[in-house]
Design a protein around this nucleic acid. Structure first.
Length: 185
DNA sequence: AGGCTGATTTTCT
DNA sequence: GAAAATCAGCCTG
């Protein structure tokens, strides 16, 4: 898709719910995005809150590129860069393409354990620092936004202490592969 | 079902 | 030196 730049060039709060239902692939391996979180420049929980650093430079780069960082020293987390200082953390995917490769990389067979968390999906899709800052519109990525309206629910974000009350986590209603359950809305 | 812990990089104090 | 956008393994009840 060629409008990825325009699709992403908005606040994370607008882009995050619209990414639910989109398909994401890396080297042909991927699935349907079922859980995202929004992060903004004026958001104390965002890596961009205190300005640009070597790690978060991609968040200040062009929209439609990816921001990848190491979490807790061991996992990778995958974000889609939106307007300057805005990014959407992709937290869970419903595995659909290349599930055998995912099972090997994850060392697990249960479909629910392949991509149901930000660190898990990076391992399943073989995402690491070497892809940081790359454009989503080119190899090895493929992003196709949802073409139908999907039922999106929201709740508080996970694993943060600052601004933890913002309802900036979005999920596909009824999905069996969310990283954590959502409160009913 | 729920809580604690270790693994370990990047950033900030 | 501590905290962090996490996960798996092991514990308790």
């Amino acid at each position: 898709m060629q409008n990825i730049y325009r699709f992403c060039d908005r606040t994370a709060l607008r882009v995050a719910p619209e990414l639910i239902g989109a398909s994401l692939k890396v080297q042909g391996v991927g699935g349907i995005i079922v859980e995202t979180e929004a992060y903004a420049p004026d958001d104390p929980a965002s890596h961009s809150f205190n300005g640009s650093t070597p790690r978060n430079a991609a968040m200040f780069g062009p929209p439609g590129h990816v921001y990848i960082y190491r979490s807790y020293g061991i996992h990778w987390c995958f974000n889609i860069v939106c307007a300057v200082g805005h990014a959407v953390l992709v937290r869970a995917i419903e595995p659909r393409w290349g599930t055998d490769a995912m099972r090997v990389r994850r060392g697990r067979s249960d479909i629910r354990q392949l991509c149901s968390g930000p660190g898990k999906l990076c391992q399943a899709l073989d995402i690491d620092k070497t892809l940081d800052g790359k454009p989503l519109g080119e190899e090895p990525f493929e992003l196709v936004p949802a073409d139908e309206n999907v039922a999106v629910i929201s709740d508080r974000r996970v694993g943060i202490t600052k601004a933890a009350d913002y309802p900036w986590r979005f999920g596909l209603a009824g999905s069996a592969v969310l990283s954590k359950p959502f409160a009913r809305r």
